[in-house]
Each structure stands twice: as C-alpha cells, then as structure tokens.
C-alpha cells in the first residue's frame, strides 16, 4: 500500500496513458463494427462468413500482431497508433457479432410499422433500428471495453507506456507491489469505464428502464 501511495503520480499517469490507448480503440471498434454488421445482415448469405470471419481475428495472438502491424501500417512498433489499431482489430472481433445480432434483434413489427408510416430506409435505420438495437449494442460494447482495457497491458512488453508497464517493471525488478498495483488499477479502470458506459446507456435510452408498468 505504501508503495502504491509513494508512486501514485506515476500510477495515475500510466492509468491515463492506458485509457488514451483503450478509449480510441473501443470507439473505433464500435464505429467500424456497426456498418460491417449492417452490411452483413443485408447480404444474408455472407452474414455468417463475415461475422465468424471477424470473430476469428480474436484468435490472432496479440504480441505478434503488435509486431507485424507496423510493417503494414508503416508506423513504429512503439507508436501509439500501432497499438490502437491492433486493439481495434481485437475489438472488432467481438463487436461485429454483437452488433449484427443486436441489429437483427429489432422487432420486425416495429420495423414494418415504421416503414408503413413513411420512414425512408436510411431514416428508419438511424432513428428506429439503431436506437432499438441500443441495449444489445451496449452489452457488446461493454465486453469490448473490458477486453480492450485488459489487452492494452500487452503493449507494455513492446515498451509502450500503460498500466502494463507496472507488470513489466515489477517482474524485471522483483517489486511485487508494482505487479499488484498494475492488476488493481487495470481492474478499477475497466470498472470505471463500464460504469460510464452503463450511465451513458441510461441517459440515451430512457425507455429501457421505463419498461413495464
């Protein structure tokens, strides 16, 4: 505990760095996954191929991906962009299936009704289907968020600063509190981001808690 208090400024700095790697990746995974999922649902024969195919990306070992990506992207291994892109790919692997299922779960009757009263296809997607898929999308996003926060740590092995650096330093120099702090703060960060997502969901989807009488 004393170690943590002594090093608190450094830990908080690493937490912020951690968040700055994770947050853009989570957002990018979500924003890319939704259109892919939409397209996959539209072209039924391709749906399973696209959904399972992106799901398989999760099987790519993370460390080699961090090393191979710079060759494709032309960035340095320690470039934050490199890390963010790799994390986005893992996020996509989880999010595309969630998003495809979420968009699919929108009640057919509601879809039909909105068409019948005169929604154009685009308007219907953005103002009816997307909001109604919201709760299921949020559930997927929460998994991506937790998974990404945990994956960021791997990049510490490459020398990119994050809470993972507390593990690598701790292991190298035999400082157990550093390792414990790394684990604890990663978990706290994941929890905070999750709470933030839940709160955002409450705010943007007020009809959900309204639910039944």
């Amino acid at each position: 505990m004393a170690w943590i208090l002594d090093h608190l400024p450094r830990i908080l700095e690493l937490s912020l760095a951690h968040l700055l790697l994770a947050a853009p990746a989570i957002a990018a995974a979500f924003l890319v996954a939704v259109p892919i999922a939409w397209a996959a649902n539209r072209v039924r024969p391709l749906r399973e191929i696209v959904v399972s195919g992106t799901g398989l990306l999760y099987a790519v070992p993370s460390l080699p991906l961090f090393i191979v990506l710079p060759i494709i992207l032309g960035t340095g291994v320690r470039d934050t962009l490199n890390v963010i892109v790799a994390l986005t790919i893992f996020g996509l692997a989880l999010m595309v299936r969630s998003a495809a299922d979420a968009l699919d779960s929108v009640d057919g009757g509601v879809r039909l009704a909105s068409t019948a009263v005169g929604y154009s296809a685009a308007l219907r997607f953005f103002t009816v289907e997307l909001p109604l898929a919201g709760p299921a999308l949020l559930a997927g996003l929460r998994v991506v968020s937790v998974s990404t926060i945990s994956l960021v740590s791997v990049s510490a092995v490459l020398g990119v600063q994050s809470l993972g650096s507390l593990f690598t330093d701790g292991f190298e120099r035999g400082i157990v509190p550093s390792i414990v702090a790394g684990i604890a703060f990663t978990a706290v960060l994941a929890l905070l981001l999750d709470l933030l997502l839940v709160a955002a969901g409450r705010l943007t989807m007020p009809w959900v808690k309204g639910g039944r009488r």
């Binding site: 009757g109 039909l112 019948a116 009816v128 909001p131 009809w207």
Partner: peptide, 18 residues
C-alpha cells in the same frame, strides 16, 4: 411519400417503443 399521406394502423399498435 405515398405512405406519409395514408394512415396506417396495425395489430399490436406498431408503436415505436423508444
């Protein structure tokens, strides 16, 4: 445009839940 000038009422109301 046609649908916007014709009223449509369906079973189970078809209301937008959100």
């Amino acid at each position: 445009a046609l649908r916007r000038r014709i009223g449509y009422v369906m079973q189970n109301s078809g209301l937008l839940p959100h």
